[in-house]
Design a protein around this nucleic acid. Structure first.
Lengths: 367, 367
DNA sequence: CAGTAAATTGAAAGCGCTTACAATTTGATG
DNA sequence: CATCAAATTGTAAGCGCTTTCAATTTACTG
């Protein structure tokens, strides 16, 4: 408590009182200026803004939030940190919020239930005014509480059986149907499917689309070609590694529940000596930016991720501004994007599987 | 204001007063129980905890923060949402904070100066007690302010010329030196280097290490083999695409400033018809989890990302608990991890690409 | 000029919590 | 029992801001 802390000369906090003193007005008026209240004289407003700038005043968000003011901050709960799916949605969210002068703060659950539940509570009791949830895995544990609290939220890429939530989603079933149908049209009959995390509704819908397309193409459903996945690259890699090592003859095409799993599938196929797309065709889902960067460019079902983020953010902000808004459900169209990772099934008897140990795996004489 | 909002029956907030009433104690005592103050009777403590559980009380973080209490929340500013580098560091941070009962909240600057500066301010004026910054690009614009405010922070993978910051970093120079040296030992003399974002200190250090190793291996430095990059996959892809299209003979090895750029380099090389590692060797930096998933597995300089996150988080928490702590600098060792993406340089006359258009005059018979 | 309505601003309460200091209780000792 | 020290708890102020309601100012009309 003596003058031992010579270096920690903490600059006293500039408060709204300092601004009021410097501008010769009351705290109430300063507050009104800063919140954009309409009945303030222009000369008064200028005096306040000058004082704010001179003093470098920054409002205390906890104080403002506690006093009933606006933090203009939205919480976003994400399952992981992923520059493709989550990152693209987040950029859409960020864009919509920025243009409306809102801040975005992220919480990462790392796919853990206790984290997901805990953070939803922390968000609802912090300074944020609403919550966006990207593909939450355990929403039933807290959606009722959020509604009781009348805390605004929007689900992205997840369903709510109670029909009481605002949701932004894509046509997962239709997208998966079209992708599978495309592989059928290419002549593939052994089409493996990497499942996503089945507690996310999109994974369930995609599996159903896959099954429906097989049925409509008169291809029998094979349980050993439905590969357990978790939307992650390593999960996709291991699933495909296993099916290529155990199923004989192996699948000639793979439809993965998302692009990240498809990347893992590509790695496993290459490691197994398969060329893409000559020996095995691969389709992903999402069309994250990386899908068109890799070689060969991935055929995938485009989900308008950025727009989904934008729409969700707009829905949430509208919900915050107008609490009587009923829950909405917006379903955005997917679209099969055909690139380079698919080819017609090869019907030669020597199906080039083993003796072609091409470590790079990409050079064909036609290059 | 009438009873039009039949559906918005918002449940009144449970406050600390409700808990105090239910347990027959004062608010101060309830607060003391919840903050773990030692001089509380065990019977009193139990009464409070029972009331908390029965009522489902959750503290208001803004109120607690404003009153001088602990939010036990750390802000993390990240340049983007990246499951490899940022995600791995974040997992280390999360692990260290979780075990110490702290929360983590992320802000993504998306590499924009105004976002980075703005969010640092928002964090410092919100409910967080400290700030971690992963590879911030523009720290000079706000570090002085943070110090004036005595707001605790730690830099990860970035330098501060004033030497007044706590920093966690890796031996970037040494790591880059070793990677480049390894390529020299494999016989490569045309080694391209993809630069990182040069406003991040690690990028500068890695470039210096590359240059030093070339000099020590008596390989002349070539400006046209130093490729402009930005630590991003697309940047790496485009840089390599260009160098393969313009430099003749092309480089036989590429050292990228990070794994993500290396992935982009691999894609461009494949697109150009090159096999990895037969035609072109590639080294990354970071050893993010994906580096050992892809095919072929990437040789890379391991940066102990998770441990860096852990150490940074611990340093920050210690700094918050003990404000007199002087700034610390922790430098963690990198380590060259040799996997499958490198091979000795091929010396055959038909080097598999072109008809060997020797125009540049780099290959001397003494090579 | 007086009266009125609208515009503008200030005073004060309070948001939910923490903590300093005072008051009370408890336990030990002679 | 009285005294004392430590343990335990309560009271009240206050953190920084917002907002309601009252007070003041301004502008217009007859």
């Amino acid at each position: 408590m003596c003058s031992l802390n010579i270096d920690s000369k903490k600059k006293p906090r500039i408060t709204i009182k300092d601004v009021a003193d410097a501008s010769g007005l009351s705290c109430a008026t300063v507050s009104r200026v800063l919140s954009g209240y309409e009945f303030v004289k222009e000369t008064t407003r200028k005096r306040v803004l000058e004082a704010v700038e001179q003093l470098g005043y920054v409002a205390s968000l906890p104080a403002r939030s506690l006093a009933g003011g606006r933090s203009r901050t939205i919480g976003l709960l994400v399952p992981n940190l992923d520059v493709g799916y989550v990152g693209t949605i987040t950029q859409g969210i960020d864009k919509a919020l920025s243009s409306a002068n809102w801040d975005l703060v992220l919480y990462a659950s790392h796919h853990q239930l206790n984290k997901e539940t805990y953070y939803v509570n922390a968000i609802a009791n912090g300074i944020t005014e609403g919550l966006l949830l990207i593909a939450p895995q355990f929403p039933s544990t807290y959606l009722d509480t959020l509604r009781e609290r009348d805390f605004p939220y929007v689900l992205i890429d997840q369903a709510d059986p109670t029909e009481n939530s605002s949701i932004v989603e894509a046509t997962n079933y239709q997208g998966a149907y079209e992708a599978t149908q495309y592989l059928c049209e290419l002549g593939h009959t052994r089409i493996a499917f990497i499942v996503g995390s089945l507690n996310v509704w999109s994974a369930v819908d995609r599996l159903r689309g896959y099954k429906a397309a097989l049925a409509d193409c008169n291809i029998p459903l094979r349980q050993d070609l439905i590969l357990e996945g978790d939307y992650q690259q390593q999960g996709g890699y291991e699933a495909v590694k296993q099916v290529l090592n155990t199923v004989d003859p192996p699948p000639t095409a793979i439809f993965a529940s998302n692009d990240i799993s498809a990347f893992g599938a590509m790695d496993a196929a290459r490691e197994h000596g398969f060329r893409i797309p000559e020996d095995i065709s691969i389709i992903g889902f999402d069309d994250i930016p990386q899908a068109s960067l890799i070689y060969p460019k991935l055929t995938t079902v485009r989900q308008p991720l950025e727009q989904m983020g934008q729409v969700a953010a707009q829905m949430l902000v509208e919900r915050i501004e107008e609490r009587s808004r009923p829950p909405q459900r917006v379903t955005m169209a997917t679209h099969l994007v055909i690139r380079d990772s698919c080819a017609p099934r090869q019907f030669q008897p020597g199906e080039r599987k083993k003796p072609f140990r091409e470590t790079g795996g990409n050079l064909s004489p036609t290059n």
